[in-house]
């Protein structure tokens, strides 16, 4: 197992390197550079601009620029935002990330608490009305675009029924303790469900099909033949084996959640990373865009690494791979 983990780790390092190359290439291909605004400004002497380009290293060959950039980001400097003048990218990301983490955690909680048991129940009661209902839910969860679901939720629950706030993260500043927590939670319900909808459907279908698959295997028959109780068969043998492939799914979940967060945060005016990214896109703020891309890609990479290691720990058969 340690050999496997080590080997997996050795793949991680070149991937990390390639990710930085890709982000750098995209940043280079992007139109404009930090001085574009001044090039277009007739009152600025072109020679001064040229001097500043030289000073900033913008005239260096790409590999040199890449190495400089790499040494900057390894110290945590992602550059200055063009749109939010006077603020650095890392500062902006740090200010918005917590909101997205709350949102993602809440939505992941819904996904696992609803998706997995529903899939389990559906597999146990295969071909019953409950199973069909869950299947229909699964189809709808995948067919309803999250922004359309969000629009309907806002229309019905915020404006017709007035149950949940249509936007934002808190209703008033200054709340403390349990009130602040409940207020936050109240604002998280609709974005959280919207973000978790498709994943819940996927986890449900996945759990169901994995359970059915495991239930058909010999060791389950053996367990039953030994006279093991149905509860034990279900939880100790079936579920534990059925959940193993879900780990891989979880490894990619962060990326999926972030893609979803862009749309969800846009509908609910939720000040998180997704909205920050969209603001960057709308204003062609490339340092910001690339900074977020880099952070997210690295996070996904680490997530995959952890998922693979967890997989090896949970399922010893992987050793022979």
């Amino acid at each position: 197992m340690y050999k496997y983990i080590l080997r997996r780790f050795l793949i991680f390092i070149p991937m990390l390197f390639i990710v930085t190359v890709v982000v750098f290439t995209m940043a280079t291909l992007a139109p404009g550079d930090p001085l574009t605004g001044e090039v277009l400004d007739p009152t600025v002497d072109p020679e001064v601009v040229e001097q500043r380009r030289e000073a900033l290293g913008l005239n260096d060959p790409p590999p040199v620029q890449y190495m400089n950039w790499l040494s900057e980001i390894s110290q945590g400097n992602l550059g200055d935002s063009l749109h939010y003048s006077g603020r650095t990218v890392e500062e902006l990301i740090m200010s918005r990330a917590p909101n997205t983490v709350y949102l993602a955690a809440f939505s992941l909680f819904i996904t696992i608490v609803i998706g997995v048991p529903l899939g389990m129940y559906s597999a146990r009661k295969q071909y019953t009305p409950v199973d069909y209902t869950a299947t229909v839910f699964g189809f709808f969860g995948l067919a309803v675009p999250n922004f359309f679901f969000a629009l309907i939720a806002v229309y019905v629950f915020s404006f017709q029924l007035g149950l949940f706030p249509p936007q934002g993260t808190i209703s008033q500043p200054g709340l403390t303790g349990i009130d602040a927590f409940l207020d936050r939670l109240h604002h998280l319900v609709m974005p959280g469900i919207t973000l978790g909808l498709a994943s819940t459907a996927i986890y449900m279908r996945y759990t169901r099909s994995e359970m059915l698959d495991v239930m058909g295997q010999d060791f389950i028959r053996t367990a039953r033949a030994k006279g093991m109780g149905e509860q034990n068969v279900l939880y100790k043998h079936t579920l534990r084996n059925a959940l193993i492939p879900l780990i891989t799914l979880l490894g990619f979940e962060f990326g999926t959640l972030l893609s979803g967060a862009v749309v969800t945060e846009a509908v609910f005016s939720f000040p998180g990373l997704g909205q920050l990214f969209l603001t960057g896109i709308q204003n062609q703020d490339f340092p910001l865009i690339m900074g977020i891309n880099l952070i997210i890609a690295v996070t996904v990479l680490v997530g995959n690494l952890l998922a693979d290691i967890m997989y090896a720990v949970v399922d010893p058969r992987i050793r022979y791979d």
């Binding site: 991937m15 390639i18 990710v19 890709v22 995209m26 291909l29 992007a30 139109p31 990619f252 990326g255 999926t256 972030l258 893609s259 979803g260 862009v262 749309v263 990214f277 969209l278 896109i281 062609q284 865009i289 690339m290 977020i292 891309n293 997210i296 890609a297 996904v300 990479l301 995959n304």
Partner: peptide, 24 residues
């Protein structure tokens, strides 16, 4: 497979939005 790995690391929508913006 390594190339597909690379693509799958970048969240799909973020990658699409970034490329669409670069292309203008």
């Amino acid at each position: 497979m390594r190339v597909t790995d690379l693509f799958l690391i970048f969240p799909f929508l973020l990658l699409v939005l970034t490329v669409v913006t670069i292309l203008e």
